[in-house]
């Protein structure tokens, strides 16, 4: 945990410097007649972030914050596995939505989590895996007219749009 506290503070300090540099693409000083330049607001805030990171590192060195005193590990094997499954499956879900759309990826995601990770029987998994996309379609697309991404499966939905929305 102690090392993680330092790594995070240093990473955020580098990110703050990047934000300061990026903000400076627009003027950061006073422009006569139009006030502070467009980059001033984010530039000085990023400078504030940097100061905070230095402050966090000083506190880390003095062992003032709880994580800087902690002897626990930041992530053990169990938590790394849980994190990789959670974040990894979400990455696959979002990536897959670009290609085959929400209505293919959502059932697959639900089956993976409920059937393979949760161990629920098909009698529980199947109704949720089918019901969720059906609900999403009717609520978002038909009732609220919010079109969800469908990737290559888009043409398959034209008859449904035709039928429900005319």
């Amino acid at each position: 945990m102690r090392l993680a506290e330092l790594v995070m503070a240093v990473a955020m300090a580098i990110f703050s410097l990047y934000l300061m540099w990026k903000s400076a693409e627009l003027p950061i000083g006073w422009i006569e007649g139009s006030g502070p330049g467009g980059g001033a607001f984010p530039f000085w805030l990023a400078a504030g972030m940097l100061i905070c990171c230095i402050w966090i590192i000083v506190r880390w060195a003095k062992r003032l914050s709880p994580p800087s005193r902690s002897t626990e590990s930041y992530m053990n094997a169990m938590s790394i596995k849980a994190f990789l499954i959670g974040a990894g499956s979400l990455t696959v879900l979002i990536g897959g939505i670009h290609i085959v759309g929400v209505y293919v990826m959502v059932p697959l995601f639900l089956i993976f989590h409920m059937r393979y990770l949760g161990g629920h029987p098909w009698t529980v998994t199947a109704p949720v895996a089918v019901g969720m996309p059906v609900f999403t379609f009717f609520f978002f697309e038909i009732a609220l007219h919010i079109t969800l991404p469908k990737g290559y499966t888009e043409p398959a939905f034209y008859p449904l749009y035709e039928y429900f929305l005319g």
Binding site: L90, I94, I97, L110, F112, M114, H120, V128, M132, F140
Partner: peptide, 24 residues
């Protein structure tokens, strides 16, 4: 059970995050 609720919440997050701007 959390193993049902968690994936449903994840999906609601994805759809809910998409809805305001409709941008992946």
């Amino acid at each position: 059970p959390f193993t049902i609720l968690a994936p449903i919440i994840f999906i609601l997050c994805i759809v809910g995050g998409f809805a305001p701007t409709q941008d992946m």
